[in-house]
Design a protein around this nucleic acid. Structure first.
Length: 553
RNA sequence: GCCUCAGUAGCUCAAUGGAUAGAGCAACAGACUUCUAAUCUGUAGGUUGGGGGUUCGAUUCCCUCCUGGGGUACCA
C-alpha cells in the first residue's frame, strides 16, 4: 500500500481513537484527503481534514488537528508530524527512510512504483482504430501514444490490460478505398476514369494500383472494386502496424468490424435495442431514440438503403466489449469523434448495460510547427504529414514525449525544430540526459578500474545533500502519479513528473560528485549507490513512456 | 442555434475544493582547468476572460455573459 493510503488509514484510526478518548465529539467522517503541500518545506504529505471537520465538530480546526495528531499511530517511515495553521496536519518522512529509497528503487527495478489497485481486474484500452484506408495521421498518433501510455500505467497498477485496435474493414470507407485503387488501376491501363471528391486522393493509392499492375498486368480489368479494396486494406493495415511499432505501440488484439457482421452481432444489437423500445422507423430508415438520453435529436442506425450507419457496428462493438467482462475499458477519441462517442454509450445502455466501466478519453488536435510557423496540412488534398514521415524526421522518442506533454484537452503544437534540439530547452533531451549522465559515471568508474560493486553495503546516511534528498523524495511520487493517471485516465501527468524528476536530478549531479578528489571514499560509495538508483529510476520512467534510455548521446 | 474544449506570467502550458497560483521558453544577472556547460544558480514577471453565487476556503463547483478552437450527415 502506498504511503498516502497508509496515512489515510492512520488519520482515520486517529480520529476514531480521539473520539473514543473524548478529545473529539462524534460526527460523520467525510473522505480523508492526503495531499502534497505546495511548499515542500512544510512536509512531504499533508492532511486538511481538520479544516473540513470544523463545522461538524464545532471546534477550531487547529484544535481538531492537534487532537488527531495526538492519537496518530507511529509509522516507521515518518519523521516529525506537525500541526500548522489554519489546521493542517503535516507529515515528514524520516531522512533514513528517504535515503533507503535508493535500495527500494534498485530492488524493484523495472517494477518500481508498482501498485495493486488493479490486481485481479481485466482492463482494455482501445486507441488509434483508424480505417485501413491510409497512413497513420498525427491525430491518430496522439491517441495511440496516449492510449499506450495509459495501458502501461494500468499494467503497472496491476490490471491485466490489453491494447486493442478496432479495425474498420467494412462499410462505405472500404468501398471508396477499393474504387479509388480501381480507378487508378484503370488509369494505368489508359482508360478514362476519374476520382471524385469522395475518393482517396493520396499518392499511396496510385502506388497500390501500380503494385497490382506489376503483379497482374491488365488481368484485373474486369475485377470488382472489392478485389482492389481487399488488397488495399490488407496492405495499408500492415503498413499501419509497422508505423505504430516504430513508436513502440504494438496491439494485443485487432477487432475486425467485419466479424460483427459475420457473427450477426450488428443485427442482433439492432433487434435487442428495438425490443427494448429504443428504435423506430421513419422515412425508410431505422432511428435510435437518443433524445431519451438527452441528445438533441435522434440518430439513424440503419439508412434507408438498408445499410447500417457507422453508429450501428460501433454500438455492437461496444456491446461486445461489455460482454467480454472488462472491469475497465478506456476508449480514446480524437476531436472528430467528440460528438459521436456518447451516442455509442447510449446504444450500450439501450442494450441494457451499465456503461460506467467505460472511460472515454478525448483529445484535441496536433499541429506541426516548423521555423516558428504552423505547417499547413490538408487531409482531403493528401498533404498531411504521416507518422512515418515524422519518425523519419525526429525519431520515436520526441513523438512519444510530446504527444503526452499536454493534457488531452489542450492541443499539441509539435515543434519539429525543438524535438531534435540537443539542449536543455528540449525536455526529451533534458530527461534522457539525466540517464546518460548516470551512465557516464559508471563508465568512468569502470575505466578507472574500480570495482563494479563498490557501493554494496555503502553507508547511505552519507546521502545528506538537500539535492540528493529532494530527488529521492520525488522518486517516491511515481506510484502516486501512476495512480492519478489510472484513476483520471490522463497520461500527461507522467510527462510532467518525469520532467520534474530530471529537474531535481541535474542539480544533484552538479553538487554531488562521485569521482572528484575531494570526495572521501565512504561518501563516494554512497553516491555511487545514489546514481545507480537514479539511473534505474530514469530507465523505469522512460520505459513507462515507451521511450529509450540511452547510455550516450 | 445546440454540443464540446479552451481562456492562468510576454509566449506555451501545469495545478485530486486547501497554505504565498507553479514550470518551461523568452528577458535580465551570474557560474566551466567539471563524473560531457548537452548543465547549474539567481532576478523579474499575475485582478486565473468579465460578473454573480455556493463554501471556513474557488484557477477548481454552479449560473450568466464575452472571446477563440473543434463538432454538429441516412460519411467514419
Amino acid at each position: 500500500m502506498s504511503i498516502p493510503h497508509e496515512l489515510n488509514t492512520a488519520v482515520s484510526t486517529a480520529i476514531t481513537a480521539a473520539q473514543e478518548a473524548g478529545d473529539l465529539p462524534p460526527f460523520d467522517l467525510p473522505p480523508i484527503i492526503i495531499e502534497r503541500p505546495r511548499d515542500p518545506a512544510l512536509g512531504d504529505y499533508s492532511c486538511p481534514i481538520a479544516l473540513r471537520l470544523a463545522k461538524a465538530a464545532r471546534m477550531a480546526p487547529l484544535k481538531i488537528a492537534a487532537a488527531i495528531a495526538a492519537h496518530l499511530p507511529t509509522l516507521p517511515y515518518l519523521g516529525e508530524t506537525a500541526v500548522a495553521p489554519p489546521g493542517f496536519i503535516n507529515f515528514r518522512l524520516s531522512e533514513k527512510y528517504v535515503q533507503g529509497l535508493t535500495d527500494s528503487i534498485l530492488d524493484a527495478g523495472m517494477e518500481y512504483g508498482r501498485l495493486h489497485i488493479g490486481d485481479g481486474q481485466k482492463a482494455q484500452v482501445e486507441c488509434v482504430s483508424a480505417n485501413p484506408t491510409g497512413p497513420i495521421t498525427l491525430g491518430r498518433t496522439r491517441g495511440g501514444v496516449m492510449g499506450d501510455t495509459l495501458a502501461r500505467a494500468m499494467k503497472a497498477a496491476g490490471y491485466h490490460t490489453e491494447l486493442e485496435y478496432y479495425y474498420n474493414d467494412a462499410g462505405r470507407q472500404i468501398t471508396m478505398l477499393g474504387e479509388s485503387v480501381q480507378i487508378r488501376y484503370q488509369q494505368l491501363l489508359g482508360q478514362e476514369a476519374k476520382l471524385t471528391d469522395d475518393h482517396y486522393q493520396g499518392a499511396y493509392i496510385a502506388d497500390l494500383a501500380q503494385e497490382l499492375y506489376d503483379q497482374h498486368g491488365g488481368d484485373l480489368i474486369n475485377a470488382p472494386a472489392t478485389t482492389f479494396g481487399d488488397y488495399a486494406k490488407d496492405k495499408i493495415s500492415a503498413a499501419q502496424k509497422i508505423s505504430l511499432a516504430r513508436i513502440n505501440i504494438t496491439f494485443d488484439s485487432y477487432f475486425n468490424e467485419r466479424s460483427l457482421y459475420d457473427s450477426g452481432k450488428v443485427w442482433e444489437a439492432l433487434e435487442t435495442m428495438n425490443q427494448n423500445g429504443y428504435v423506430y422507423k421513419k422515412d425508410g430508415a431505422s432511428w435510435f431514440k437518443t433524445t431519451i438520453f438527452g441528445d438533441d435529436k435522434d440518430r439513424v442506425l440503419v439508412k434507408s438503403t438498408g445499410e447500417p450507419s457507422y453508429r450501428m457496428p460501433d454500438i455492437a462493438y461496444h456491446w461486445d466489449k461489455a460482454e467480454r467482462g472488462f472491469d475497465v475499458v478506456v476508449d480514446l477519441f480524437g476531436p472528430d469523434h467528440h460528438a459521436t462517442a456518447p451516442q455509442v454509450l447510449m446504444g450500450v445502455q439501450a442494450l441494457g448495460y451499465d456503461t460506467s466501466f467505460v472511460h472515454t478519453v478525448l483529445h484535441q488536435i496536433v499541429s506541426l510547427i516548423r521555423d516558428g510557423r504552423q505547417v499547413k496540412m490538408s487531409t482531403r488534398r493528401g498533404t498531411y504529414v504521416t507518422l512515418d514521415e515524422l519518425v523519419d524526421e525526429v525519431g520515436a522518442d520526441p513523438i512519444r514525449y510530446f504527444m503526452i506533454s499536454r493534457s488531452g484537452n489542450s492541443p499539441v503544437d509539435f515543434n519539429l525544430d525543438l524535438a531534435v534540439e540537443k539542449s536543455d530547452k528540449n525536455p526529451v533531451y533534458y530527461i534522457q540526459n539525466a540517464h546518460v549522465r548516470c551512465a557516464g559515471i559508471f563508465r568512468k568508474w569502470a575505466a578507472a578500474g574500480l570495482p563494479a560493486d563498490a557501493d554494496k553495503g555503502a553507508d547511505l546516511s552519507l546521502l545528506t545533500h538537500p539535492n540528493e534528498l529532494a530527488f529521492l523524495r520525488k522518486s517516491l511520487e511515481l506510484s502516486e502519479v501512476l495512480e492519478k493517471m489510472v484513476t483520471t485516465a490522463e497520461p500527461h501527468h507522467l510527462a510532467f513528473y518525469t520532467y520534474d524528476l530530471a529537474a531535481m536530478f541535474h542539480p544533484a549531479y552538479e553538487t554531488c560528485r562521485v569521482l572528484h578528489n575531494d570526495v572521501d571514499d565512504e561518501t563516494r560509495h554512497a553516491r555511487l549507490h545514489f546514481y545507480r538508483a537514479a539511473k534505474q529510476l530514469f530507465a523505469r520512467v522512460l520505459d513507462l513512456m515507451g521511450m529509450s534510455a540511452p547510455e550516450t548521446m
